[in-house]
Write a protein that binds this DNA or RNA. Sequence first.
DNA 1: TCTGGGGTCCTAGGACCC
DNA 2: TCTGGGGTCCTAGGACCC
Length: 419
Amino acid sequence: MIGLFDCNNFYASCERIFRPDMEGKPIVVLSNNDGCVIARSNEAKALGIPMGAPMFKYKDIIQENNINVFSANFTLYGDISNRVMSIASEMEPNIEIYSIDEAFMNVKINNDDKLFEFGEKLYKEIKKATGITVSIGFAPSKSLAKVANKIAKKNKEKIPVFIINDDKQREDILKNVVVEDIWGIGRQYAKKLRNIGIDKAYDFTQLGDAYVKKEFSVVGLRLKNDLLGKPTIKFEDIKKKNNITVTRTFDKNYKTFEEVRERVASFASSIAYKLRKQNSCTGSLIVFVMTNRFRNDLKQYYNSAYIQLPEPSNSNFTLAEYAERALKSIFREGYYYKRAGVLACNICDTAVAQTALFHQNNYVQDTKAMDAIDLINRKFGRHTIVLASQDIDREWKMNQEFLSPKYTTNIDDIIKVKI
DNA sequence: TCTGGGGTCCTAGGACCC
DNA sequence: TCTGGGGTCCTAGGACCC
């Protein structure tokens, strides 16, 4: 059976762990730069704050209702996530971490009572060790586990575990699931289905294979079979990322090449670091810049450049150098830039990276330098050593007005208890 | 004034190879 | 009138997920 557990209101719950006074009170968590609402507690949802709400448009509602606001603290969320995942892995090592707050598990139990027991134990262990509550669904396939998970989440009073384990029950449930709620059916596909009179997940599973494939591609066909209880969407344990992206919206408009270059160099360094963490290199980069798409009064510009590296690399030096070259090719004077990003494509394992025929890179030296930099930055803080092209004076600051402490990762932020 | 960030997979078309 | 068959790589775009 496939299990799926999912943390409830994850970011908001993380903020609550060390703020028990926030229990039962509305909380929202904002995106970088305090731009949009990206997480809400149940109380905030009930007050009608939608997902993705721009902060400046909802300021009044937030104040009137005394909603507690937090800036995104991804260091904290990432650390809590690691703890949750490691507890789950101890109970079932066959686990696919699907996102920061959810994971599939391939459990070798097919008895409802035993499954429920397993789910209950998982719920309690995670709750006890981290303070986070999860909802758990079990079913023969991934998409059905998603459905089961959703039902479990609605079960407010009991232990949130739900099992789909027989055909009759599965059909009855799918007859009550609207197409919008199917995992893998988004806005466009839902519209398409509604247009041909398909409203429920069950109706979708009754469509012909050829038709589904034509209209929704092989992805849709896989989904159909998966919903029929034939596990078709593969279970994959830990895999490396095929793409790594670092993009940011700036706190203000940038006009000069130097300002944007600094950001791009930092993004490239950050990508290099992420590559090293998963033992990968990238063979090429994409760099993009764009103006503020919400400002109709300003000239708009978007451009991206693809650049190949002489050979795959995960060195800050190389990536920053080539990212800058790419940036040079697309940067135009006279615009107000609001956002830029660097993408690593063609990622490969470091061990099998194909070096150039006339290999001239200082690969060995770079590797040693990167090891040393990583070690120092781990010991003394993330920005102890940066490239000269990066923001040495730390002028660039994200708007983070409501940032909570890094309770679990920074020794100075650990809470003090008076006895 | 202020509007996030990071991923996956698939398809189609163009340019190329033998 | 009729014009093979089997590939690769790259780019762009569209759909989806959290």
